[in-house]
Design a protein around this nucleic acid. Structure first.
Length: 424
DNA sequence: TCTGGGGTCCTAGGACCC
DNA sequence: TCTGGGGTCCTAGGACCC
């Protein structure tokens, strides 16, 4: 059996951990730049606060009901996420971290009769060890486990946050209750298409043929979805050692920017960030692309499809050295930038990733390459152990007008000595 | 006035090769 | 003057996820 463990309102729960006064109060957490609501507690939801909606639109509701608001604090969430995942790894030999707040567990080592008790044990252990409450779904496939999890969350009181689909009868009952739109793998576009075709419940979809799904729902992906819904495992557990195939760092600016120096500073900074991620997984990149997005005049326009222009450079040889990536990145900015235009966002993407050959003392690499790698390791270590970016490249700038807004961030209780939680 | 960031997989279609 | 079939590699774009 496959099990999904999902932290309840993760970012909000993380904030509450250090603010027990907010325990049963409505709380929301905002995206970078304080733009959207990306996490909300059940209490906030009950007041009608929507998910992923713009903050400014929910503001009246938030003020009216005195909802507590936080800017996102990724240092805190990342640290708590690690603790949750470490706990899960003591409970199953096979754990796939699916996102910052979710993991799949293989429970084939547990006797089927023991699964309800074991699931409850997982939930209680994580809560006791980390203070984070989780919801659990268990079923024969990942997709059905996600569906079970959805039902566990929908009625926390009755399910105690655990829902198990042990046989075909329970699967049918569950799928009949779910709309297609809440299935894992069915997004907005497909949900609309399916409902137009009169396929409303997850059970309706389960009863369509694989060939039909192949034609209507994106080829092999659609056919696989049908098999999963029928209880035929078709999405395997992923190898935890797999590394990323692309690394990106992209941000909205705090305020729109119209001079090339600011944009180059931002791009240099994002490149440093991306290069750190690259070195962490011991890869080197052979291609770098940069995009910048102009601020559109029409605010009603679909903001996700802004006027993005991009270009890329293929590097003479794969590298993970920050300075060798920054140079081509800012050269791309020169090609893209148009005088007089206001820009609101930029991003850097590293691809064509290969294992880094220049790691530590590689006897076969030129001495100079090893030196670069050692320098980078040193920079990473200092930046990790001290504060953000104690050491940075001059091209990243020092004043950073384009930096994002984070007006309401909580202290980094668990990762900064000077922001530790104080007990009086 | 104000709408996030970081990923994955898949398909279609063009360029090129023999 | 006529002009096949099969394969690979690449990019762009669409769909999805949290």
């Amino acid at each position: 059996m496959k099990c999904i463990v999902d932290c309840n309102s993760f970012y909000c729960s993380a904030e509450r951990l250090f603010r027990p006064d907010l325990l049963r109060k409505p709380v929301v957490v905002l995206s970078n730049n304080d733009g959207c609501i990306i996490s909300r507690t059940d209490e906030a939801k009950a007041f009608g606060v929507g998910m992923a909606g713009p903050y400014f639109m929910a503001k009246p509701l938030i003020d009216k009901y005195g909802i507590e608001v936080f800017s996102s604090n990724y240092n805190l969430y990342g640290d708590l996420s690690m603790r949750v995942m470490d706990t899960l790894r003591t409970l199953s030999p096979s754990v796939e971290v699916y996102s910052v707040d979710e993991a799949f567990l293989d429970l084939s080592h547990i006797d089927p009769k023991e699964i309800p008790a074991y699931s409850m044990h997982i939930r209680k252990t994580v809560e006791q060890w980390t203070g984070i409450s989780v919801s659990i779904g268990v079923a024969s496939t990942k997709t059905l486990a996600k569906a079970a999890n959805h039902l566990a969350k929908k009625n926390k009181a009755a399910t105690q946050c655990v829902y198990i689909l042990a046989d075909a009868v329970q699967e049918q009952k569950a799928l009949q209750q779910l709309r297609v739109s809440s299935l894992w793998g069915v997004g907005r576009a497909y949900a609309q298409k399916l409902e137009n075709l009169g396929i409303v419940s997850a059970w309706d979809l389960r009863n369509m043929s694989e060939e039909w799904a192949y034609r209507q729902l994106g080829g092999v992906v659609g056919a696989r979805l049908i098999r999963e819904l029928r209880g035929q495992p078709s999405i395997d557990m992923r190898d935890p050692l797999e590394s990323k195939k692309m690394i990106a760092t992209t941000r909205m600016f705090g305020d729109p920017v119209n001079n090339i120096t600011d944009i180059k500073e931002a791009v240099a900074t994002y490149t440093s960030r991306a290069a750190e991620k690259l070195r962490r997984q011991q890869s080197a990149a052979s291609m770098i692309s940069v995009f910048i997005v102009a601020k559109e005049e029409d605010h009603m326009a679909d903001f996700h499809r802004g006027n993005s222009i991009s270009d890329y450079t293929t590097l003479p040889s794969a590298t993970s050295a920050t300075h060798r990536l920054i140079k081509p990145a800012v050269e791309i900015v020169d090609r893209l930038y148009e005088t007089g235009t206001w820009y609101k966002k930029a991003g850097v993407m590293l691809s064509g990733l290969v294992p880094d050959d220049s790691i530590q003392a590689n006897l076969f690499a030129a001495e100079q390459v090893n030196e670069q790698r050692l320098l980078m390791d040193m920079v990473d270590n200092v930046n990790f152990s001290m504060r953000d970016d104690v050491i940075k490249f001059a091209s990243s700038g020092t004043k950073r007008d384009w930096k994002m807004r984070q007006a309401l961030r909580s202290p980094r209780y668990t990762t900064r000595w000077d922001e530790l939680f104080e007990v009086k």
